[in-house]
C-alpha cells in the first residue's frame, strides 16, 4: 500500500456511508444512508457494481451472515472499510482541504 487509491465522488460517498454505519453495513443500509444524508437515490445495479469495484481496489471487504425469514433465508453481506480504504479517504480529504483553502470568502460559506 504505497500510494493511496484515487476515489471517484460516488466511491468517496460510499466509503463514508459504510464508515458512518459502523460495524457491518448491509447494502440496503448503505443506500438508506446515502438517501438520507446525501440526498442521493441510487439504483441497486449501480450500487452493487460500485461496491464490487471498491472491493476489487481493496478498499472494502465483506463477510456473509445468515439471513432472516424476511429474505427467505438468503445471506446478507456486511461491508467494512479496509485500512487501504481509510488511507484513501484520508488522502481524498487532504486533497479537498488543500483545494478549499482560501476559497471560503469567494464561496461565502461559513467555515467548518
Amino acid at each position: 500500500m504505497a500510494e493511496p487509491a484515487y476515489l471517484g465522488e460516488f466511491e468517496h460517498l460510499l466509503l463514508l456511508a459504510v464508515l458512518r454505519l459502523g460495524d457491518g453495513a448491509s447494502g440496503p443500509d448503505i443506500a438508506r444512508e446515502l438517501e438520507q444524508r446525501a440526498g442521493r437515490t441510487v439504483s441497486r445495479g449501480h450500487l452493487y457494481t460500485s461496491l464490487d469495484r471498491l472491493e476489487d481496489k481493496g478498499l472494502l471487504r465483506w463477510k456473509a451472515v445468515a439471513g432472516a425469514a424476511a429474505r427467505e433465508g438468503l445471506p446478507r453481506r456486511l461491508y467494512t472499510v479496509t485500512p487501504g480504504g481509510l488511507a484513501a479517504l484520508r488522502s481524498a480529504r487532504d486533497v479537498l482541504r488543500r483545494m478549499w483553502r482560501g476559497l471560503d470568502g469567494v464561496l461565502k460559506e461559513p467555515a467548518s
Binding site: S26, G27, P28, A31, R44, Y48, D52, A64, G67, A70, R71, E72, L74, P75, R76, R77
Partner: peptide
C-alpha cells in the same frame, strides 16, 4: 453468495 446476498437485499427492500 454474491448473487444470493443481492437477491436477499432486494427481497428485503421490496417488502
Amino acid at each position: 453468495v454474491r448473487g444470493d446476498t443481492i437477491r436477499g437485499d432486494l427481497l428485503e427492500e421490496f417488502r
